[in-house]
Each structure stands twice: as structure tokens, then as C-alpha cells.
Design a protein around this nucleic acid. Structure first.
Lengths: 310, 310
DNA sequence: TTGTACGCGTTATCAT
DNA sequence: ATGATAACGCGTACAA
């Protein structure tokens, strides 16, 4: 491997001059910068991260910790990961994948965390390196979509479409996002002077389908689903009961990365803007690495119009 | 951060003794090993990878390069990634995520590659560090499922079920896996003395559904689908034509990580054994790092019985 | 503006 | 079986 010294010799300067060209070009004369850069290109020199890490006490490496169970990983995590990889690379950092609770900070400059639950938060809060979580937790810098605004959007879309009955299909409320999504529906309904109708199910399309089959939907009904999985189940329940979507039955899902496209009809959904989320996550991390204090960011999602709303 | 020196001082030994306890415990007396390990535990010492990298000219870091387009990433890549992360960690390595064609080998000991296409292979072959690809390419150590065996399994399952007509729904043949899957169907049909019926479509459930709607399926038909997406489309086409699955129409998909579960009926499918694949990929990489030469590995997939076959 | 000396944490080598 | 020393590649502090 070609080292700084190799470049220095080839360019007839000292190591430090080459180092400065890379890190403090303002301190080097223009001609030498040009020379050195040419040699760097010719030799295909790439900085050795280990040497840099040792000298700077930085590792240029961020651990992305995906704590969700491997069998419950939703497809959109792959997208979040890709975007985070891009953003970190752009910022000069590397993304190291982890999916255990190894918060060892000897070889990383910070953590990006997804899928953290109750007991993880204390741990994260006690860390001495920057942390950004995907989700919501007071006291920890985080990026999340505004889940409440999302279901408000969904609910209002169905209200505007004029459905007589407007049901919320929710999931287990142990996670903040589930609570906020339900609150969004409640608020929108309250504001519209409408009566809420809320059910909680496991996040499973078969469960939703079975549940709605028993509920006897009778047309002119809108469903705000807490997830696309539930929305998918609602779509199937409606169709198997002979309802026409979206005329008799309107559905808005939530997440919008993969499932909504696989449905029999493309689901109208509230889409997670994962590229934007990744940008904010990395930006918050970089600010912390620069010594700034940061506050959490909430991104307002958008309604992605499919075929399950008019 | 606590360093080797800190441990050495606390244990009243030299740095080298601590290093040996970690790397060559056979060269250290049992009592000292015990002492040092205790101190390591007390102080929470973790090896600094940068120091190690510099001393050993190894980085203990493997780049996983996911070359597929971000919009075409199938959900099962997330699973492969998780398993690779586990396997590498178990082998003492770190997984660095990349998804560009950055094959810079200054900071990495090897590459795991998925989604490589034509021109990538020459590049990969010219690298001086170990490479293992997920897929098939002569001259490059690789791990892949035996796609041909997979569709043979699928075809035989439908032959055994006694369907009168047995169609293959294939995709664009530009990728080796697509060719092999088709060959598996052909072979199984030939062996059974049956006539083949093959169609090529884009890998899209809507396309498959539309295509089969025109084909006028008339019952007692089996479909070997090259992917679960196509299998999903076949299922929908059959149901919308009033066929009973699996009585009138039998379907076997391929991949079996996510889509097959989301279908209206759980798809019978040929499942990618991703944990096994990850194990082999990392094993092949480690062997190369140890200086051995390796040959590619093919894993025979299994039929996962769903509700679309009897 | 450019160069020299030293140290970051670790391990191989050589010495004891 | 254990310790001293040098070296890996880079950047900071200081010197010129």
C-alpha cells in the first residue's frame, strides 16, 4: 500500500506537506498543492484510517446498530441503511454494521441506533460518544417522522373523501410511534367533530383481515391503518366482502416503502421519507462530533396517493 | 480509553505480556493469564483496532458491497446482511457497509459482494485481497444457491401433485440465476417426459397477473415461478379467474424471505437459506485470509410448503 | 510556507 | 516465560 511517505518522496516534499495538502490545504502554497495532488492521483494514494485514527484519536467510523429482531426487520430498514451509508461516506465516515447490544466505544466515534427499546435508552444516554436514534426518546438526540401529523394527514384525506364511518386500525401501544399515530387520528377526528372508532391488533395483515371480516363493514367506510401491513389486511377484508375500493371502502396505510406496492391495489399511504431521515440523523451526529449540542428532529411525512383512496 | 499499557500497569506486567495473553496465550503462564484477564475485565479493556491494524497490517474489517440499485433491493438483503454481520463478528471482523463501486483496499482485508454485474467481475478478479461474491461467476470465489436444483424441486413438487399443464414463469435471462432456474424446470420436465411451456416477464407481480389473465388458465394447472413476485401475480390471476388454489391452480415461488408471507395465501416457495449462505461466504473469506485457495460453494435450497400446493 | 521530532496503541523481533 | 525495542502511518507541536 502506498503511504504518505511514498507520496512525499515522489513529490519531493516532506510527509507533513502531504498531510497538510489533505487536511489544511490553506497552509500550503498553490503550486505544491497541485504537485502533491497529481502524485496522489498517480500513485492512487488513499489515507490509512488506522494511522489517522491513532494520531487523531478519532476512528472515522460510526456504528449503525439495528436492534430489531431479525425476523421482524421491515424491508424499509435496508433503505435507511443505504441512505445512512451514503450520508456518512459523504461526511468522511464509515458505517459499521452491528445488531447486538455491543456499545463498545473503543473503535467508533458515535452510534446511530434503530429499534431501541426501554432498557436500551438508559444505556444509550450513559454513553460518552454522540448518539442519534431513529425513533423518539426524551433526552436522546433523535430523528423521527411526525407520526401524529402523518395520521392526521391520513384521517383528513379520508374525511375529505366523505366516508360516513372512519375507523382506526392500531397496534400495540408499547412504542411511542404507535401512540402518536393514534393521537393523530383522534385529533383529526375531534377537530372534525366526528366520533372515533379504534381497534388494536397485532401488526399482521392476516389478523387485520380476519378482524375486519367479523366487523361487518357495510360500505362508505374509511380506514386509517397504523401500518401498511394492517392496510393490506383491510384491503383484502374489504374485497372479500364484495366492497369496491375506494368507492365503498377507503384505506390509508403507513410506512410506504415496500408493502404498499405489493398490495393488490397500490395502497395510499403515509410515506417515511427515509432519505431525509438519514440526512438528519447524520447531520445531528456530525454536529455532536463538532461539539455542538443538538435537539431532536421531526420530519413531516407526506401522503402518497395510491389506488385505495379516491 | 483504557489501553494495553493501562492493563499492563494494573497487572504489574509489561505490555507484551498483556498482548500475548490476548494473541498467544500459550506463551504465557497460567497464573499470569488469569491475573491479566481479571484486570482486563475490571478495567473493561477493549483492543484498539487502529493500533492493531497498524502493527499487523491487517484491518479486521470486511467491506460488504451491495451493488444493487437502491430501488431494486429485495427485502432479503437485510437478512443476508444481518447474518453476515454475525458471522464476521464471530470471526473477529467488522462489517463495513458500502454500496458504491469503491473497491479501495487500503482500509479493508477483503470484500463480500452482492449484486455484481458484468463489468464488476473483471474489477473484482483483479483485486489483491480476498473476495467472495453472492452469486455466480467463474473465476471468483462465490456462494450461491443451486438455482437449478431449486426449480427442479419446485417442478417435481407440482408434477407429483398431478397438474395436467405445467407452466414456467421466468424473467429476463441476463443474470445467471435466471438461466439456471429455467434450466431446472426444463430438466425436470424433460425427465418426466413432459412438454415445457415457458414465458418471460419483467419481475413484477402486476405484470404476471396481467399476463396470466390473458393466458386463460383453465384449471388443473401448475406454475413454477422464477420469483415470489411472479408467484404472487400468478396467485392473484388465478383467484380473479375464479380458480381454487391449490386445487385448480398450484404455484411454487422462489426466494422465500418476505413476499411469500405477505401473499393472500402463503406461497409455497423455494427458500434461500440465507444463514447458511452467510456462513459459507464468511468461511470462504476466512480461508482466503489464511492463505488457502478456495472453490465456490452451492447450497441446495429447500421447498417451503405453503398453501399454494396441495 | 515547509520541515523535524514525537506520540498515538499495538505486535513482531530479539534478548534475557 | 517475560521484557525491551522498534515499527506500522499519520498528525500535532514546535522549529526554521
Amino acid at each position: 500500500m502506498v503511504s504518505l511517505l511514498d507520496v512525499a518522496r515522489a513529490a519531493h516534499v516532506s510527509k507533513m506537506t502531504v498531510s497538510r495538502v489533505l487536511n489544511h490545504p490553506d497552509q500550503v502554497s498553490p503550486e505544491i498543492i497541485a504537485d502533491v495532488q497529481q502524485v496522489i492521483a498517480e500513485l492512487g494514494y488513499v489515507q490509512n484510517r488506522a494511522g489517522r485514527a491513532l494520531a487523531n484519536n478519532r476512528h472515522y467510523n460510526i456504528a449503525f446498530i439495528l436492534l430489531d429482531d431479525i425476523n421482524e426487520i421491515e424491508p424499509y430498514y435496508a433503505h435507511l441503511l443505504m441512505h445512512l451509508t451514503d450520508e456518512l461516506r459523504h461526511a468522511g465516515y464509515t458505517l459499521e454494521m452491528r445488531h447486538d447490544r455491543n456499545f463498545d466505544l473503543t473503535n467508533v466515534d458515535g452510534f446511530l441506533v434503530s429499534g431501541a427499546r426501554g432498557s436500551d435508552f438508559e444505556l444509550l444516554q450513559s454513553l460518552t460518544v454522540p448518539v442519534v436514534i431513529y425513533g423518539t426518546e426524551p433526552g436522546i438526540p433523535s430523528v423521527d417522522i411526525d407520526n401524529k401529523a402523518g395520521t392526521q394527514l391520513a384521517t383528513n384525506a379520508l374525511l375529505d373523501a366523505g366516508y360516513a364511518r372512519l375507523i382506526y386500525l392500531g397496534i400495540d401501544m408499547s412504542e411511542p410511534f404507535a401512540i402518536n399515530r393514534e393521537v393523530g387520528y383522534r385529533d383529526a377526528m375531534l377537530t372534525a367533530g366526528r366520533t372515533t372508532e379504534i381497534y388494536h391488533l397485532p401488526n399482521d395483515e392476516h389478523a387485520a383481515q380476519a378482524f375486519l371480516a367479523d366487523l361487518n363493514l357495510c360500505g362508505n367506510t374509511g380506514i386509517v391503518a397504523a401500518t401498511d401491513r394492517l392496510g393490506l389486511g383491510a384491503l383484502r377484508a374489504g374485497r372479500s366482502q364484495g366492497l369496491t375500493v375506494p368507492t365503498d371502502l377507503g384505506i390509508v396505510g403507513f410506512d410506504g416503502i415496500y408493502i404498499h406496492q405489493l398490495a393488490e391495489l397500490p395502497l395510499t399511504t403515509i410515506q417515511q421519507p427515509l432519505a431525509t431521515i438519514a440526512q438528519h440523523m447524520v447531520a445531528l451526529l456530525m454536529k455532536q462530533l463538532a461539539g455542538e449540542t443538538v435537539t431532536s428532529v421531526y420530519v413531516v411525512p407526506e401522503l402518497l396517493h395510491g389506488a385505495t383512496t379516491a
